[in-house]
Nucleic acid binder design. Structure first.
Lengths: 193, 193, 193, 193
DNA sequence: GATGAATGAGGCTTCATTCAT
DNA sequence: CATGAATGAAGCCTCATTCAT
């Protein structure tokens, strides 16, 4: 699965031949089919495993127990840092999750659902913060969650998978710096102090 | 090209057969090759045409001639509205641009460059605003541009191509409402008044 | 289709590779799929064509307009001779029809139905003869038809496709001789005059 | 072997995987190869066992010690009944014997030889009856045997393995009734009293 | 310009058989 | 005797591209 996820991310699902995977793995073609029902099956297993790990990270990051705005911002920054760290450690999975709007129905859906669950977590987070009076009420919580999720997806994709202009230091940013910048934008926007 | 871009967007590049395109077009298979050198060639032509149109919209939107913060915000909102309108009218091209990180090297690069140019436009916009003292100085302009671009890409993708939760009214939002929400988040973040 | 039917009959459906057929035909592998949807499809087309021809022969052979027993026997002999001649001229199709209780569901059914139609024709023939008083009434017309059909199938299979003992002259028998022998057994049995 | 013969008969030799057989048997794949050299080997063993049993039945049935025509008919009916009973009790083997003109050379030949031996037994029977003056002389004893064998094969196949028209009572016939009908046709034909 | 038949390389999957334990 | 993981050859089918007309 490690070999497969890397190849899927680097060269694409369709461009990855079973023969590539088994060659890398040093086993025979038939051996693949002892462990996986099909090419699609291994992709779905990869997604499922990644999904669980990622959602666990997000779930663990929820420590919104009320408190000051500053504490909320710090909490958010911690969560983003966790997510970014996860992305760094599972870069091939994240590349697929963020960038592969693949051509295979089932696979696309599996990724899609993972992202929906992720966005949902953020939405619940925002909701709670609104209830606690830490964030202003807004007509559509969903749009805020969508904007936040867009932010995270986009910034991670650019951070890890480029491309970035040559004079940008984004790729070299440490996890905590990136989280600081992102969370700042998240709460204060371009105009924020 | 209209037929092809729709099929590419709906079913994917690899899942679109030349025979599908020509069937829809009502011509023979060989005819395709009179007009396009290859399957890749038509994709690249599609991208090139879309790229020009899109960048023209963005270029036209630049009317930042200094002024108050409010004017800047209004200008930005106008630009976003223009972009959203373009996306609405060229939904298949936008779907490919935003969601197809395809498997074909050349095609992926063509999309990628278009997005880089787009992001670059935003970066220059921000730079100018900083120079004019309308936005606070920041260590990395690129990151701000990346965050802004992420915002726009993510929100357009969700707005037009879903999926969105059933209780979200995002898909029904009018161009101007969406632009208002996005620009508000852009400048003030979640906490913004 | 001629090439395919021969290979199917000689070596079996499963043992016949598409590459065998196209090699014999002197065309490329892909060309096969321009004319036939699949390997199964060509088999079904072969069966359909053979079925129509065969049933046409049987239908044409019905000239039972009443008359003496001798005329009935002669009519039956003519019909059998027609069938045997057809079998001789379509030996590969007949070999499949009579001997291939193949492994492919759809193909087996297609052959099966053809044989059912054939047996049905014989049953109607017998029925008419009984109505005309030319044959004794019998509890089960179906069994008589089954016995008659068995006779024809078995004798044709042995005549054309062997194996026969070395001292049997069955394979060398002319169509009319074979028909005479078969019809004699049909009407009079082993004890018949 | 019981499991294998059933699967071979129901789904075909080629459609039966070794893994199917061992799964049904509740043993491991490798175990199969401790008992049988190959897939073909088990098929040949199945055929050999069935062949011996079947020929024993036929041999036992020979009690033609001269006598009246009526006694001859009764003897024949007893033999057919024995064969039909055997077929009923070994339906999967019989299905293969009668209907599987399989694709595997060796297997096809093994079945073929069994049927030749069977037909040979009938031929010797007829010969003796002719010598004893109980049956009329005929130019070709082989053809008579072939016709008789065809009769038996065809009627057993239809009786046990269908298909039969819905208004036929053939499938419900008891062994003795079937034997009576068949032997009647055998000796007297369609016209026989 | 247009047609559509022909090409052929390439990939996923199956499954009988082997073999180390 | 038994296990079950591993092997790898083989075949059906797809589809971008070509080309004679």
């Amino acid at each position: 699965m490690d070999i497969a996820v890397e190849r899927f991310a680097r060269y694409g699902y369709q461009n990855t031949k079973i023969s590539d995977i088994v060659n890398d793995a040093g086993v025979a073609q038939g051996t693949f089919y002892w462990y996986f029902k099909s090419k699609e099956a291994i992709a779905l297993e990869i997604i499922e495993a990644g999904r669980e790990d990622l959602l666990a990270v997000i779930k663990r990051g929820y420590r919104t127990g009320g408190g000051s705005v500053q504490e909320m911002v710090q909490g958010s920054q911690r969560l983003l840092a966790d997510i970014f760290r996860f992305a760094q450690e599972h870069r091939y999975f994240m590349q697929l999750l963020l960038m592969d709007n693949g051509e295979e129905e089932a696979i696309r859906n599996a990724f899609r659902e993972t992202r929906i669950e992720m966005e949902d977590s953020f939405r619940r987070n925002i909701e709670r913060a609104v209830e606690l009076g830490m964030l202003p009420k807004s007509s559509d919580i969903h749009i805020r969650a969508a904007l936040l999720m867009s932010l995270i997806e986009g910034i991670v994709a650019r951070w890890l998978f480029g491309p970035t202009p040559s004079d940008s230091n984004l790729p070299e940013l440490a996890v905590d710096e990136l989280a600081a910048q992102a969370v700042h934008f998240e709460f204060f926007g371009l105009l924020g102090i």
